[in-house]
C-alpha cells in the first residue's frame, strides 16, 4: 500500500511541467517510513523462519542430517500429533466462526439494546486475549474435578458430570477451552464488517422484489465472504499455534505439535532441538498452505468488489 502511494506521488510530480526527475535523496526519504516495517519483518518473520529451516537439518551433535524431516513422516507419534492439531484447529475455527458470527449478528443487527453491544465488544476484546495459563486454570477451577461448577452441580442437584465418562481432560474439553478465545475474536472482527452493510442495500433489494433470503444470498453474504474466510483462517492459526493453554491444561496428555516441540526444547528429559525445529517447519508449511488457500479464495470472493 505504502509503495503504491509513493509511486503515485512521484508520477504526479513528473506530470508537472517544471518537475525534475526525483533525486536520489527524495527516493531515500520516501522509503524511510517503511524502515520499521522491513526491520520488523526481517527480525520477527524472515530470520526466525530461516533459522527454523536451517536448524531442522541439525542433528543432536550439531552435524547435518535428514533424519528429523524423515521422522515427521515415519514416527507414528508425530503423524498423530499433526492429525490431532489439525482436527482441533479446524473444529474450533469452524465452531468459533459460526458461533461468533451468529453472536455478532445478534448484537449488531438483532435489534438488541445498545448497551449490550458495548458490553459485548468490550468482553470480546478482553476474552479474545485471555489465553494461556490463566485460561487453563480458569477452566480447571470451574469445570475440573474439584471445579466450582462441578461441585455445585454435585451438591445442589446430585449431578455427577463425570458419570457418563466425560472429563474436561480430553480433546472435547480442550476444544471447549479454545472456543473461549476463538468466538470473541470472530465477534471482534465481524462486528465492523456487519456494520458496513448499508441499510439501503436491504431496502433496494426489497424494492426490486427480493426476499430476505435473496438479500443474504446475493448481497450480504458475498460482501461478508472475504472477511468470513479471513477470520476463519485466523482462528485456525490461533488454535494451531496455541501452546501455553494446552500445556497448562493437560500437559502432554493431548498429543499436539506445539507440545511435542516444547518437549524437545525444554525440560530435563528429551532434548533434540533439530527435531523441534523440523516439527515447527511442518507447522510453517501447513500455515503456508492455508494462507495460499485463503488468498486464492479471497481473490475469487472479492473479485466483483474491485
Amino acid at each position: 500500500m505504502g509503495i503504491t502511494n509513493k509511486t503515485l506521488t512521484a508520477q504526479s510530480k513528473g506530470d508537472a511541467p517544471t518537475a525534475r526527475p526525483p533525486s536520489k535523496k527524495t527516493a531515500v526519504v520516501n522509503w524511510l517510513p517503511l524502515l520499521p516495517f522491513f526491520l520488523f519483518a526481517a527480525l520477527f518473520l524472515f530470520l526466525p523462519s530461516i533459522s527454523i529451516f536451517v536448524r531442522s537439518f541439525e542433528s543432536v551433535d550439531g552435524g547435518f542430517t535428514f533424519d528429523n524431516i524423515i521422522a515427521l513422516f515415519t514416527v507414528q507419534d508425530f503423524v498423530n500429533a499433526y492429525k490431532t492439531s489439525l482436527t482441533i484447529s479446524v473444529i474450533t475455527a469452524l465452531g468459533g466462526a459460526v458461533f461468533g458470527f451468529l453472536l455478532a449478528y445478534a448484537v449488531i443487527l438483532g435489534g438488541l439494546p445498545k448497551g449490550l453491544r458495548t458490553f459485548m465488544t468490550t468482553f470480546s476484546g478482553v476474552a479474545s486475549n485471555f489465553a494461556g495459563v490463566p485460561l487453563a486454570f480458569a477452566f480447571i477451577a470451574t469445570m475440573g474435578n474439584a471445579g466450582l461448577v462441578t461441585r455445585w452441580l454435585e451438591s445442589a442437584f446430585e449431578i455427577d458430570i463425570h458419570a457418563g465418562g466425560f472429563t474436561i481432560y480430553s480433546i472435547t474439553g480442550l476444544s471447549i477451552v479454545y472456543m473461549y478465545f476463538q468466538f470473541p475474536l470472530m465477534v471482534l472482527i465481524m462486528a465492523p464488517a456487519l456494520d458496513g452493510l448499508h441499510r439501503e442495500w436491504n431496502e433496494a433489494c426489497a424494492n426490486l422484489g427480493g426476499t430476505n433470503w435473496h438479500y443474504w444470498r446475493y448481497i450480504a453474504f458475498p460482501i461478508l465472504l472475504p472477511s468470513l474466510l479471513g477470520t476463519t483462517i485466523l482462528l485456525f492459526g490461533n488454535a494451531f499455534g496455541a501452546y501455553a493453554t494446552a500445556y497448562a491444561f493437560s500437559g502432554s496428555f493431548i498429543n499436539l505439535v506445539p507440545i511435542l516441540i516444547g518437549a524437545q526444547m525444554q525440560g530435563d528429559v528429551l532434548f533434540n532441538p533439530g527435531l523441534g525445529n523440523a516439527l515447527a517447519l511442518g507447522m510453517v508449511f501447513i500455515m503456508g498452505i492455508s494462507m495460499i488457500g485463503y488468498i486464492t479464495l479471497q481473490r475469487r470472493a472479492a473479485r466483483w468488489l474491485r
Partner: peptide, 10 residues
C-alpha cells in the same frame, strides 16, 4: 510434571 518434560515424572 509431564513425563515427556520432567525427569521427576519419569
Amino acid at each position: 510434571g509431564d513425563v515427556l518434560k520432567s525427569n521427576q515424572s519419569v
